[in-house]
């Protein structure tokens, strides 16, 4: 399959996101298998140095789209630029990390070009004349095999952590080519007024050695007390999945996952957490993971070292008593 693979690399504060390196690494592997050329695409204002660094590190050509209006991301500008890039470069695949930014613009871009977008893929099978992707459906409990349809380019985003086995390989000296694509007024109507970090509060879970985390399975704010009790008995920090902070059982700053904190404790005990991918990406690199859940098919068990399939309300009180004994 001759042709070209493009990878859009996302960056913030002068650094390429790790998920974009994963996409570049996988893109290299795929391009090699399909005998295709790979190019990395970067959009932004002052990105010359960053582009050289990317090209040096992966040994591929980097296409830069330098534009004063692109210091801050907007879906209109990105779609305008990337649809022209797609038309000029005629790639086979257009890859990116499955980030909040990809969620925001990729469906619009693909639709604008009359194409589909396969989001959040966790696996890919490459044969001589066929590429199929795998994505998770039904809250991570079922996988769906998705094939490419119609004419290229095919737009695909990759789940964080799913393709990190592909190392970025360097072969050559840097090559950076800038494309100038002017932005018409009609794509500049959106006003980005502010980007800010939510107040960090008092809870920094990144340094915690032990985290006891609770999820929807705890059922209510009152019953969530069991998590606090076990944490206290073990001298551990308290974490939560999204439904807990959405429901106001705990302040937002305890949330672990893609929109909250990323943690890597020695021990992570997940209680009543089913393990949506948004939660898993925030804790899957913990050294030892324990999952307690009544559903044996809950995706949390796919990352756990130890699992108890059972009722958290029966298991937690015993753990609390045992933890108190240990601490004595």
């Amino acid at each position: 399959m001759p042709g070209k693979t493009l990878v859009l690399a996302e960056h913030r504060a002068g650094k390429i996101k790790s998920i974009s390196w994963e996409a570049i690494g996988f893109g290299q592997k795929l391009a090699e298998r399909l005998n295709q050329e790979l190019k990395v695409v970067l959009i932004g204002k002052a990105i010359g140095d960053l582009a050289e660094e990317v090209s040096r590190r992966c040994g591929q050509e980097v296409l830069t789209l330098v534009n004063d209006h692109c210091e801050t991301y907007t879906p209109e500008a990105y779609c305008h630029i990337l649809s022209q890039v797609a038309q000029q470069e005629t790639p086979f695949l257009f890859l990116m990390g499955h980030t909040y930014q990809a969620i925001d613009f990729a469906p619009k871009l693909a639709t604008r070009l009359g194409r589909g977008f396969i989001p959040n893929c966790v696996d890919c099978q490459i044969d001589a004349d066929r590429v199929v992707f795998v994505r998770q459906v039904f809250n991570g409990k079922i996988n769906l095999q998705v094939g490419l349809k119609g004419e290229p380019p095919y737009f695909v985003s990759l789940q964080q952590g799913a393709f990190n086995a592909y190392e970025v390989q360097s072969r050559q000296s840097p090559r950076v080519v800038n494309l100038t694509i002017p932005l018409p007024d009609e794509v500049l109507k959106r006003k980005v007024l502010e980007i800010f970090q939510a107040a960090q509060g008092k809870v920094d879970l990144s340094q915690a050695e032990i985290i006891i985390a609770g999820g929807r399975g705890l059922g209510s704010k009152e019953k969530f007390q069991l998590i606090l009790d076990l944490a206290e008995a073990l001298g551990a920090a308290v974490g939560a999945s999204r439904p807990v902070t959405d429901g106001g059982w705990l302040p937002k700053e305890h949330q672990i996952g893609s929109s909250g904190q990323t943690v890597t404790p020695k021990l992570y005990i997940a209680c009543g957490i089913s393990g949506a991918i948004q939660h898993l990406v925030g804790m899957m690199n913990s050294s030892c993971i324990v999952a307690i859940n009544k559903d044996p098919n809950a995706p949390i068990f796919s990352v756990a070292d130890y699992g108890i399939v059972g009722d958290v309300f029966k298991v937690l009180p015993v753990l609390i008593e045992l933890a108190k004994e240990i601490r004595k």
Partner: peptide, 16 residues
């Protein structure tokens, strides 16, 4: 726009 081919249960990557 995309070709949904088949569903299957994921294999566990980690030995729990």
């Amino acid at each position: 726009m995309v070709d949904h081919q088949k569903m299957f249960f994921p294999e566990k990557k980690k030995k729990t």
